[in-house]
Each structure stands twice: as structure tokens, then as C-alpha cells.
């Protein structure tokens, strides 16, 4: 008994060491494929809150994205442009802004484990000992009481409560009506166009990294009823006080050390949500493109499903009986989808 306990812990330590080592090794190759476009990282202050985001051909999202997170209290943005063909972020604009650094990576998205290696590389180089948000440009972070409190208030509370990471649920947002009726653009906050979400269709299973895998939402309801275990994961750990030995293992879903993955400890932690704006009139074209490109998880199988759907129909309406309108963080707090932990 004792011996097996000891061997078990030894094995776990070994696995952890291997995981870390391999992820650090993988980041090395990232820099060979990286070109610095605008480097404002010298402006990063010691207590700044940072944001790392990667994008590809999503120029129209960047305006509202930067606006939203600037208002939230992000001090410096690090953007990873994966070979955008639409021009991406305007370098002259970044030069002027001083709080944006832009890098261009030419490596294949799939080869970099859906961008996980890029994230780790940039986080390790620029974000050690900072609070940092790692999201995609279609994800908007929401935390409890955000209407009256700032992100800095949140991280100071997290520091006080010895909470090193914030677990978040991804909420797929959709409009009231067919998604083809709206088009996200560079002038409007997407939450004004796609303001509905699923309040209750979330299903959970325990993962192997002290984590909780959540599946559900409109994508499970509409595309994955036959294979619910293949539905996209909705759990992420986007906000972390990054240390040099940390690394993401599976996108932002799982992070090492694994203790950061558990949403709560003996009492409730603060958890947040990521409003995920995937559904607009571009969705069918994107599904077709990505299913052909096959760079996403499991060869873009998810996108094949979406493009199959559009073979038989032209419109996609995700509304159902329980769809709820997003008003403020209080909507989510009342539904119990986010927690304020000790921060009431």
C-alpha cells in the first residue's frame, strides 16, 4: 500500500516533469517561425495586466476586441498573427498605441498543436510574473461584478485569496433569429448583435488533470447529439498569474501544473465566462474553409459537421425555449454560471 502510494507519486512527478520539458522544448521551434512586426514589449510595466491573443483572417474582430479589453483594464496586448491574408492588424496603428505588440508566426496551426506552442512561447518570454489573459479574438472575458469593479480589483482579490488562476466557461453567443442575419463588423461590439446564450445545457465530466470538462451549449444541441463526447470543450483557464514553469497543455483548456485546472478549492473560487462570438453570417464560409484546411482539432472534424449542415440548409437558427438574453455579469451570476467566491 505504502509502496504503491510512493511509486504513484513518483510516477506523477516524472510525468509532470516530462510534460513541462516537452512543452518548453516545443516552444524553441516557435521562434524560428516568428517575425517581430511591432515590439512594444519594453513598455510593459512590472505590475501590468497583459493579454495574449492569436488570430487568423479576423481583421473585423480586432477593433471591438481591443476596445473591450482596454476598457476592462488590460495594459498591454501581445498579438500573434498566424499568416493573415486580410492584412491583419495595422502595424502603424500599433506603433502609435504603445500598448500593442504584434508578431507574425508562419508555422502551421496544426503543427503547433492548435497554437498551444505559440501561446507557451510568448507567455514564457513576456508574461512571467504578470497576470495574463490568453484568449482567442472571438472570446470576451466576463467576471462577476464587472460593471462596478475593474480587472485590477479582481487580480488584487485573487492575490489576496491565493487564487492563481480563474476557470471560465465558454458561452456560445447567438442572435435572436438566424445567424445569417448578423455580421460582426469593426465598429460594433459583438455582444450587441449576438446577445443570447444557453443557460442550462452544460454537461460535465471529470478530466485527468484535476479539471472539469464541460460540453454543451448550442453546438452540442445542434451538431453533436449523436456523438456528445466529441462536442467542443467549453472549459478554459484564461486568466493566470503566469510563472516561468507554467505551460498550457491543450490550448487554454488545460494548464500545467494541474492544480490550476480545478475550478474551486475547498470553497468556491471566483470563476468567469468567455462570451464566444462564433456565429454570424460568415460562419458557413468559415466552416467550409476550415474543414478543407484541416488544421483544427482532429483534422477539423468539428468544422466538417458544420459544413455538412449547410449542405442541406442555408440558415441556422440557434434559439430554443430556454435561450436567455445576456444583460450583464449579474445575469450569469444569478444563473450560477459564474461564481464570485469570496469576492461578494
Amino acid at each position: 500500500m505504502l509502496q504503491s502510494l510512493f511509486l504513484n507519486s513518483l510516477r506523477k512527478t516524472w510525468e509532470r516533469a516530462q510534460r513541462r520539458h516537452s512543452s518548453i522544448k516545443r516552444t524553441r521551434s516557435v521562434w524560428r517561425h516568428t517575425k517581430t512586426i511591432v515590439d512594444n514589449t519594453s513598455h510593459i510595466g512590472a505590475s501590468d495586466i497583459l493579454l495574449v491573443a492569436m488570430f487568423r483572417d479576423e481583421k473585423f474582430r480586432l477593433g471591438p476586441f481591443i476596445d473591450y479589453y482596454r476598457r476592462l483594464g488590460i495594459d498591454h496586448f501581445i498579438f500573434i498573427d498566424n499568416d493573415s491574408t486580410d492584412g491583419g492588424l495595422d502595424p502603424s496603428l500599433c506603433e502609435a498605441a504603445k500598448d500593442i505588440s504584434l508578431f507574425r508566426v508562419t508555422q502551421s496551426f496544426g503543427a503547433a498543436r492548435q497554437g498551444t506552442d505559440w501561446l507557451n512561447a510568448f507567455l514564457q518570454r513576456y508574461c512571467c510574473d504578470h497576470w495574463v489573459i490568453s484568449v482567442d479574438v472571438d472570446e470576451f472575458f466576463v467576471f462577476p461584478h464587472m460593471e462596478s469593479r475593474t480587472l485590477r480589483d479582481l487580480v488584487s482579490h485573487l492575490t489576496d485569496a491565493e487564487q492563481a488562476a480563474v476557470w471560465s466557461l465558454m458561452l456560445d453567443m447567438y442572435p435572436d433569429g438566424p445567424i445569417e442575419d448578423i455580421t460582426f463588423n469593426k465598429d460594433t461590439q459583438p455582444v450587441l448583435q449576438a446577445d443570447h446564450f444557453d443557460p442550462n445545457t452544460y454537461f460535465m465530466v471529470a478530466g485527468g488533470y484535476q479539471d472539469v470538462w464541460v460540453r454543451g451549449g448550442p453546438r452540442l444541441r445542434r451538431f453533436f447529439k449523436e456523438h456528445p463526447e466529441k462536442a467542443p470543450a467549453l472549459n478554459k483557464v484564461p486568466l493566470i498569474k503566469w510563472k516561468k514553469n507554467f505551460s498550457y497543455l491543450i490550448n487554454q483548456h488545460v494548464v500545467s501544473p494541474v492544480r490550476l485546472n480545478s475550478p474551486h478549492c475547498w470553497h468556491s473560487h471566483v470563476t468567469g465566462a468567455l462570451l464566444h462570438f462564433k456565429f454570424d453570417s460568415r460562419f458557413s464560409a468559415k466552416a467550409k474553409e476550415e474543414s478543407g484546411r484541416g488544421e483544427h482539432y482532429q483534422g477539423g472534424e468539428e468544422y466538417k459537421r458544420y459544413s455538412d449542415y449547410y449542405k442541406s440548409s442555408t440558415k441556422l437558427d440557434l434559439m430554443y425555449a430556454s435561450s436567455t438574453r445576456f444583460e450583464s455579469s449579474k445575469t450569469l451570476l444569478d444563473l450560477g454560471l459564474i461564481n464570485d467566491g469570496l469576492w461578494s
Binding site: A206, P263, L337, L342, S344
Partner: peptide, 24 residues
């Protein structure tokens, strides 16, 4: 008032995500 509840652990019932797996 609500002061006594502030900074104290919230009700476990309202915790999300909660694994509904009573095996574990």
C-alpha cells in the same frame, strides 16, 4: 446585513461547475 457573508465561502450548492458524480 450581508456583511457577515462577505469574504466567507459561498454556498456549495451554487458552485459551478460542480461534478454531479456522487461516485467520486
Amino acid at each position: 446585513g450581508a456583511l457577515s457573508r462577505m469574504g466567507r465561502p459561498t454556498d456549495k450548492k451554487r458552485q459551478f461547475p460542480k461534478l454531479n458524480n456522487h461516485f467520486r
